[in-house]
Amino acid sequence: MRWLREHLVLILGMLVLLYTFVPIAVVVLMSFNDPATRNVYRFDGFTLDNWINMCGPETEGMCESLWLSVRIGLLATVVATAIGTLAAFALVRWDFPGRSSSNLLIFLPMAAPEIVLGSSLLALFVQAGFAGQLGFWTIFIAHVMFCLSFVVVTVRARLAGMNDTLEQAAQDLYATPAQTFWRVTFPLVLPGIFGAALLSFALSFDDFIITNLNSGSETTFPMYVWGQARVGVPMQVNVVGTLMLVVALVVVVVGEANNRRRAAALTK
């Protein structure tokens, strides 16, 4: 009883954690499902078919949509990470008139509901005469826009938490500003930039509401799932869901191992 009281919070916390995994367990399970009919969403039998025939005829359009999401995700991530990192440096390391309004401008897109961001962007595209050109590039523009703030916030946190003694040491040892930047500052900020890029890709890859309004006739993966949800999704959708989880976990584990190795190398 005493034991229970002491560990009550931990137990409750782990129950909540367990709860967050219930739908994920269902996704993984359903990726091995052999459905009797497509309209009823329940587990009927075990099969590896969904994994082997991911891009088969019953998933027409799914792999194309996946490929589109990957391309847009990569491109939007590169652009958002690049310009967001520059802005983060300016905000942490420089003092300039307009700094606090810039901070506010960066913050606002994160405080606006997606439906508002999406519909206002669509209003702009329509009024500017691009209603017929909605597609890859309008999705790209939208994704860079909403990823940008998250990049700035992530890189800014890393920069702000950074101690500048190493940079001072480099300068004391007659490193030029360029050498100091590329050999000391940049490697130290890199994990933050890397984290920001991962977050960007995840946000872009998973976005539905903004994309749906600005995509024209293009179909990203979330839009494919949305479209199929009305008629019953193919089980391969769960394979993609499971793969996303696996990829994310691998990236996190590799990143963490990398950090540990670096930390170990530094203390040697």
Partner: peptide
């Protein structure tokens, strides 16, 4: 981790639950 799975896919799995 659970939230790395597609938003729509995990919402659909609530349909089943």
């Amino acid at each position: 981790a659970p939230f790395f799975t597609s938003f729509l896919v995990r919402t659909l799995s609530w349909q089943l639950i």
